[in-house]
Computed example of a mutant assay.
Amino acid sequence: MKKTLKLALVAATLATSSIGWAQDGKAALVKQLIDLQRPGIEVLARSLVEDSSAPIAQAGSGYLQSQVPAEKREAAAKAADAELKKYFDEAYPILRDKAMALAPTTLGPVMTENFSEDELRQLIAWLSSPLRKKYDELNPKMGEALTKQLVAETKPTIEPKLRALDASVAKALGAPTSAPAGAQGKAPAAAPAKAPAKK
């Protein structure tokens, strides 16, 4: 009886230690997977910073085109771009570093609960593979091709809707709705806001 009890205790101890080892192994895989996600996390941080400043850039661009005398626009645009870049250069590292610090405690549990060790290994192999890198390189080109074709084929349908929207919003705001001379038949074109320089 004592022998059986000892064997049961040894078996339980081994089982517990192997579970701990398995969890440690899984934790190491999760950490590796999060490290591989760094480029995507950096893109997320960059997008958040750019999105947060986009309304200011757009409003500034509109003001620049409508309120600043033509001879002063270039200097004003450069000064505004410098401020946008300064904001980006200060805000991006903060968001990037915080995102990387939060990733283990936010992404880690989701990965641990939803992926087996074997699945984590497969993900790591895929993310590390030359095929994935090639796909990532081609993905913007594919997106650009689709966007170009989509815009070309929907432009005749969308432009009248944009003109109607422009007139409706102007009317709702009590702004003049008549288009300037020479602008009839053209979709409203907002001056594009310059994105901050990317590092």
Rank of each mutant, 00 (worst) to 15 (best):
residue 100 M to Q: 10
residue 134 K to Y: 10
residue 63 Y to K: 13
residue 41 I to L: 14
residue 176 P to S: 01
residue 137 E to A: 13
residue 26 K to A: 03
residue 127 L to T: 10
residue 180 P to I: 06
residue 147 T to I: 10
residue 75 A to V: 07
residue 36 L to H: 08
residue 68 V to C: 05
residue 87 Y to N: 10
residue 175 A to K: 15
residue 82 A to I: 01
residue 91 A to D: 02
residue 163 R to G: 04
residue 19 I to V: 12
residue 70 A to N: 03
residue 25 G to E: 08
residue 98 K to L: 10
residue 47 S to V: 01
residue 20 G to T: 01
residue 117 E to S: 15
residue 83 E to C: 01
residue 111 M to Q: 10
residue 34 I to H: 02
residue 190 A to W: 12
residue 141 K to S: 14
residue 199 K to N: 15
residue 5 L to D: 11
residue 110 V to D: 03
residue 144 E to F: 11
residue 150 L to D: 07
residue 180 P to G: 05
residue 27 A to D: 07
residue 26 K to L: 02
residue 75 A to L: 02
residue 31 K to E: 03
residue 179 A to E: 15
residue 133 K to G: 06
residue 118 D to L: 10
residue 160 P to M: 07
residue 111 M to W: 13
residue 72 K to V: 01
residue 28 A to T: 01
residue 73 R to C: 00
residue 4 T to K: 11
residue 144 E to A: 14
residue 9 L to P: 02
residue 164 A to F: 01
residue 128 S to A: 06
residue 146 L to Q: 14
residue 125 A to T: 12
residue 151 V to Q: 08
residue 7 L to C: 03
residue 54 A to R: 12
residue 171 K to Q: 13
residue 12 A to Y: 00
residue 99 A to K: 06
residue 90 E to R: 12
residue 170 A to E: 11
residue 127 L to Q: 15
residue 98 K to R: 14
residue 72 K to S: 11
residue 81 D to R: 09
residue 115 F to N: 11
residue 153 E to R: 14
residue 198 K to N: 05
residue 77 A to R: 12
residue 103 A to Y: 01
residue 5 L to V: 15
residue 11 A to H: 08
residue 81 D to L: 05
residue 168 S to N: 13
residue 101 A to D: 03
residue 1 M to C: 07
residue 152 A to M: 07
residue 192 P to R: 08
residue 10 V to G: 03
residue 193 A to D: 07
residue 161 K to G: 03
residue 54 A to E: 14
residue 179 A to T: 15
residue 52 S to E: 06
residue 84 L to C: 08
residue 131 L to D: 14
residue 105 T to L: 07
residue 74 E to P: 01
residue 110 V to S: 03
residue 92 Y to H: 11
residue 4 T to R: 14
residue 157 T to H: 11
residue 119 E to R: 08
residue 118 D to R: 08
residue 7 L to I: 07
residue 85 K to L: 13
residue 197 A to D: 12
residue 123 L to G: 10
residue 167 A to F: 06
residue 188 P to N: 07
residue 24 D to M: 14
residue 197 A to K: 13
residue 130 P to N: 00
residue 186 K to G: 01
residue 3 K to G: 11
residue 115 F to K: 06
